[in-house]
C-alpha cells in the first residue's frame, strides 16, 4: 500500500511545479468603433505623457526624466494635493462607503516605441502601479484603518473607484523597428 502511494507521490512531485506566476495585471480597452474618428478632447492639464524611446530613455511631458522619479511624479500628478492649476482637475463623486470623494480626472498617457525593450516597459508599468498602489494604501488606511490588500471586496471596489488605474496607451512609434 505504502509503495503505491510512494509511487504516486513521486509522480506528482515530478510533474508538478509549485511556484505560482506573478506579474502585473492590466485591462485592455475595447477596440474603437470604426465610426468614431475624433479622439475625445482631454485638457492638457489632465494628461501626463510618459514616452519611452527605442533606447529605453524616458520623457515626461516633454522633459527628459529618470525612472526613479516616475513614481513620485505620477503620484503628484494623480493626487494633485495642493490643487495646482497645472495639475488635473477633480470632480465630486458619491462613492458607497466613502461618501463624497474628489476624483482626479488625470490620465497617464503611455507611449513606447516598437524598439523599446519589454524590460523597460514593465519597469515603467511597475512604477505607475506602485504610485497607484501607494495612493490606494494611503486612502484605505485613512478611511478603513487597514491596508488595501486587507480590505474586503466591497471596500476594495470603493477604493478602486476613488483611485482608478488611469493609464492610457497610445499607438507605439516606429523609430527602432528594424534592429
Amino acid at each position: 500500500m505504502s509503495d503505491i502511494s510512494f509511487l504516486l507521490l513521486a509522480f506528482f512531485l515530478l510533474v508538478s511545479n509549485i511556484n505560482t506566476d506573478q506579474g502585473i495585471a492590466r485591462r485592455l480597452p475595447p477596440p474603437l468603433p470604426p465610426t468614431q474618428e475624433k479622439k475625445p478632447e482631454v485638457k492638457e492639464r489632465n494628461i501626463f505623457v510618459v514616452k519611452i524611446n527605442s533606447k529605453d530613455r524616458l520623457l515626461f511631458n516633454g522633459e527628459v526624466g529618470d525612472i526613479r522619479d516616475l513614481k513620485d511624479r505620477a503620484k503628484e500628478f494623480l493626487g494633485n494635493p495642493n490643487n495646482d492649476d497645472n495639475l488635473p482637475e477633480k470632480i465630486d463623486m458619491e462613492i458607497p462607503l466613502l461618501g463624497m470623494m474628489k476624483i482626479s480626472k488625470g490620465i497617464i498617457s503611455l507611449q513606447n516605441d516598437r524598439g523599446t525593450s519589454y524590460d523597460m516597459y514593465v519597469a515603467v508599468q511597475n512604477e505607475l502601479t506602485a504610485a497607484i498602489n501607494e495612493m490606494r494604501n494611503e486612502l484605505s488606511t485613512e478611511k478603513f484603518g487597514r491596508k488595501y490588500a486587507d480590505l474586503n471586496d466591497t471596500q476594495a471596489d470603493a477604493i478602486d473607484q476613488a483611485i482608478p488605474i488611469a493609464i492610457s496607451e497610445a499607438e507605439p512609434t516606429k523609430v527602432g523597428e528594424n534592429k
Binding site: 506573478q22 502585473i24 495585471a25 492590466r26 485591462r27 485592455l28 475595447p30 477596440p31 514593465v122 511597475n126
Partner: peptide, 18 residues
Amino acid sequence: KQELRNTGAFKIFYNAAK
C-alpha cells in the same frame, strides 16, 4: 496586445518576477 484587443480578450497579465 492589438490582436488580443481585437479578439475581445481584454484581461491580460504581464508575467514578472517579484
